[in-house]
Write a protein that binds this DNA or RNA. Structure first.
Lengths: 104, 104
DNA sequence: CCACGATTTCGCAAAAATGCGAAACTTCAA
DNA sequence: TTGAAGTTTCGCATTTTTGCGAAATCGTGG
């Protein structure tokens, strides 16, 4: 996955409304109307957020009848949030001493 | 971790320069001067990006002598990227039929 | 075919993010 | 103590993002 693609994923998740939406669909797909309530924003706004998430590959949609359902497409996204709860561990390997010449 | 905090982490990662920086320090801490080269941006700009990453809790810094070193503080961030490479799996549980009344 | 419900697209104004150079700091060495 | 190196803070202009309502789409049931 390219830098650009990964950036898009993180950027997509980096908005409270979108993250809330992603959390919501983690338990199963939901229609836009449900997500509008969950996000507490206007339809057009939610629609655009969903578009961002879909574009980034985080969600995928499926139209059934007159409504559109969104569900998680990226398997690990659900894990990411729990992952963030783990406390910091050490990874200070390769600690370098104050080098005289900066450009190492 | 609150929604706000998680949002901050993802937002921090959702910028190409910052993601590049995070990738770089995954292999060990680096001083700002190194990161300026890696990012290919001005000092002041990189400094602000680092500030964002630090504020979000993604990175932590340590001043040694006259230079400041940044390293990963969130253990799982390194895994996130590789995690994104895994292809989509199915999670369409709770698929609901086109409900007449939207509000479920 | 027509009206209606569900959703997306459009145009816009307000808010936030980006990048930059100048200036302010801090630390180390002469 | 003067100065240079490394880094951060400060305005500023430009670009992007966000939210909204109006209008355009699309499928369904008369």
């Amino acid at each position: 996955m390219t830098l650009k693609q990964r950036t898009a994923v993180f950027k997509a998740l980096g908005h409270p409304a979108r993250l809330r939406i992603v959390d919501a669909v983690t338990d199963g797909e939901l229609c836009v109307c449900d997500l509008v309530e969950i996000a507490g924003l206007g339809w057009s706004t939610v629609s655009r957020h969903l578009s961002v998430l879909k574009q980034a590959g985080v969600l995928e949609d499926e139209k059934r009848g007159q409504q559109v359902f969104y569900r998680l497409r990226l398997p690990c996204v659900a894990e990411l949030s729990s992952c963030l709860d783990r406390p910091a561990t050490r990874n200070a390997k390769a600690t370098r001493q104050n080098s005289k010449r900066c450009g190492s």
